[in-house]
C-alpha cells in the first residue's frame, strides 16, 4: 500500500485559546514495502502524524491517500474502519490497552471487530502467541498475571492479529531492558520482511533507525526537517543537532577517528561489525 501525504496540516483545539499548530505543510511519499524510521524529539509532531494514517485524527488541511483510500480536509465523515483493518498501530506502552479475561480473548478482540469468525480469530491468536515468542500456555491466563515484558508481547500480538499491511510502531520498546528491546525489534524486522509489510517506526533511538530503516524522516517543530536514506542523514551531524538529535554511536566514533587520524571511511551499514571491518582495513596493508 503506497502512502501519499500532501500539504498536511493539523491544528489541535481550533478556535479555542489553546489552539496549537502541530503539523505544518507535510508532504511525504512512502512506497509499499519501505521500512521508514520517523525520528524527532517529543513535541516534534511524530505522534500526531501517524494518527492521521488510520483516521484517528482528521487533517485540518491537506490530503492523505493510503493505497486506494483517499481523503482530504473537510471531507464529510467517512468510515475509517476498513482502513484501520489494514493499518495496525502499536502505541507507546501498548500493554495499557489490555482488558480481556484471557490473553487469547484479548488478541481476538481486533480480528472479531473487523468481522473475522470466532474460529478464525482463535486460530490467529494461537499463531500470534507463538509469533511473539510467548509459550502456548499463556493463552488461557489473565494478561494481568503476566510480567511487564510479556504483557507488551500480548498487546503486540493483538495488533498483529489484524494482519495489517501497514504496521506503525510508536516507540514499541520504551521502558524495556536491553535484551527485551533487541528481541522485540528483531521480531518486527523479521515480520517486515516475511510478510512484505510497510513499516513505520517512531523512535528516539538512532541506533534502531540505523540498524533497521531503509529511509529516515526527521521531524522538527511540526515539519519534515530531513528525509533520506540513513547514510545521507547521518552525514549531516550539524543539522541533526539543530533538531536536538545525535548520530548513532558507530557514526560518532567514525567522526572521532577521522578527526584524530585523518582517515576517511564510508559505511554502507551502521553495525559495529561493519565499522570494525572498515577500521581494520587500515591495519591490512592500508587499503581503505
Amino acid at each position: 500500500m503506497d502512502i501519499k501525504i500532501r500539504q498536511l496540516e493539523h491544528r489541535y483545539m481550533p478556535g479555542s485559546p489553546y489552539e496549537r499548530l502541530a503539523l505544518k505543510d507535510i508532504s511525504l511519499d512512502i512506497s509499499e514495502g519501505t521500512f521508514l524510521a520517523l525520528i524527532g524529539h517529543t513535541g516534534s509532531g511524530k505522534s500526531t502524524l501517524i494518527q492521521h494514517l488510520n483516521g484517528l485524527l482528521k487533517p485540518s488541511s491537506g490530503s492523505i491517500a493510503m493505497g486506494d483510500t483517499a481523503w482530504a480536509a473537510g471531507d464529510k465523515k467517512m468510515d475509517m474502519k476498513p482502513l484501520r483493518k489494514k493499518v495496525g498501530i502499536v502505541f507507546q506502552y501498548p500493554e495499557h490497552q489490555l482488558f480481556e479475561e484471557t490473553v487469547e480473548k484479548d488478541i481476538m478482540f481486533g480480528p472479531m471487530n473487523f468481522g473475522e469468525s470466532e474460529t478464525e480469530a482463535k486460530e490467529r491468536a494461537k499463531e500470534m502467541i507463538s509469533l511473539v515468542g510467548l509459550p502456548e500456555e499463556v493463552s488461557d491466563k489473565s494478561p494481568f498475571d503476566l510480567s511487564g515484558g510479556q504483557m507488551r508481547r500480548v498487546a503486540i500480538a493483538g495488533v498483529l492479529a489484524m494482519k495489517p499491511d501497514v504496521l506503525i510502531l510508536d516507540e514499541p520498546t520504551a521502558g524495556l531492558d536491553p535484551s527485551g528491546r533487541n528481541e522485540i525489534m528483531e521480531l518486527f524486522y523479521n515480520l517486515h520482511h516475511d510478510r512484505k509489510l510497510t513499516t513505520i517506526l517512531v523512535t528516539h533511538s538512532m541506533e534502531d533507525a540505523a540498524k533497521y530503516a531503509d529511509e529516515i524522516v526527521v521531524m522538527h517543530q511540526g515539519k519534515v526537517f530531513m528525509k533520506g536514506v540513513p547514510a545521507e542523514i547521518f552525514q549531516q551531524e550539524e543539522k541533526l543537532k539543530q533538531a536536538s538529535l545525535d548520530v548513532p554511536e558507530t557514526v560518532e566514533f567514525l567522526h572521532k577517528w577521522q578527526a584524530a587520524s585523518g582517515e576517511r571511511h564510508e559505511l554502507s551499514e551502521f553495525t559495529v561489525a561493519s565499522l570494525a571491518k572498515a577500521l581494520a582495513s587500515e591495519w591490512k596493508g592500508g587499503v581503505s
Binding site: 495499557h96 490497552q97 471487530n113 493483538g158
Partner: peptide, 16 residues
C-alpha cells in the same frame, strides 16, 4: 489524557 489514549488504541483495533 489517558482516556483519550486508550480510546484511540482500541479504535485502532476496530472498536467503535
Amino acid at each position: 489524557q489517558e482516556t483519550e489514549k486508550i480510546m484511540k488504541a482500541q479504535m485502532a483495533r476496530g472498536a467503535d
